[in-house]
Design a binder for these strands. Sequence first.
DNA 1: CTGGATCCCGTAGGATACTG
DNA 2: CAGTATCCTACGGGATCCAG
Lengths: 126, 126
Amino acid sequence: MNARNSEPTPAQQQDVCRTREVLGIVGDKWSLLVVRTLKDGPLRFTELKRAVDGISQRMLTVTLRSLERDGILSRTVHNVMPPHVSYELTPMGRTLRDATAPLLEWSITHLPHIDAARAEYDTRPA
Amino acid sequence: MNARNSEPTPAQQQDVCRTREVLGIVGDKWSLLVVRTLKDGPLRFTELKRAVDGISQRMLTVTLRSLERDGILSRTVHNVMPPHVSYELTPMGRTLRDATAPLLEWSITHLPHIDAARAEYDTRPA
DNA sequence: CTGGATCCCGTAGGATACTG
DNA sequence: CAGTATCCTACGGGATCCAG
């Protein structure tokens, strides 16, 4: 008896568990977009808001706090008037960005196929 | 003037857009878990339900339909009694699984660091 | 066994107004 | 400029029951 169609192994259960945790970190609507946007260097709050099209101030703040708490990015306050705050990926944040790069590559390659698959599915006989 | 801190280039905007689309496909609570669970071969509805711990029938059905519509997996009905339906990754689904593998690797490596970062953040002076 | 149909709830997240 | 504080709604998603 081989692995196919058998009970999940403990190792697989581990993987499922890890996958869920990582989705809890970056599986929301905005986190990966923010990480991607910061890939070329630090940006300020307003710059991020402009770059991540459609995000509200509230969700940008919430997302940045969450990513900061998780050690994905760092927040630097410059005490000047007007206030100046910049956000930058930490070393760990950069490894995350690298880990998600293949997924972006995949999307660029396959999104047309997905559109096609959807169209085909939707015109299928009931 | 270099790329750092400048306006997002059109190419970057493209990337942000793509990222959002791919999140619309697999960014929900269960899709990637299902894809991962199918990585070793076809499984039946009930087997999937058992393997993906905590998923409800409803969400399993919804998730499977969505992934089928997007061409990520295929659904095969065997006309016997009792009904027998199996789900299997398509070739495109397997490329998606491969594209997400680095993210899983990342999570296994870095989740402990994230826990540490959170603990540190939560005990920080206000 | 494999789902479809309903009901219901929590919460992610948008809009807006205000502040140091 | 960089947020915080409310308010409010839509939707994800669980529980349950029913059907082929």
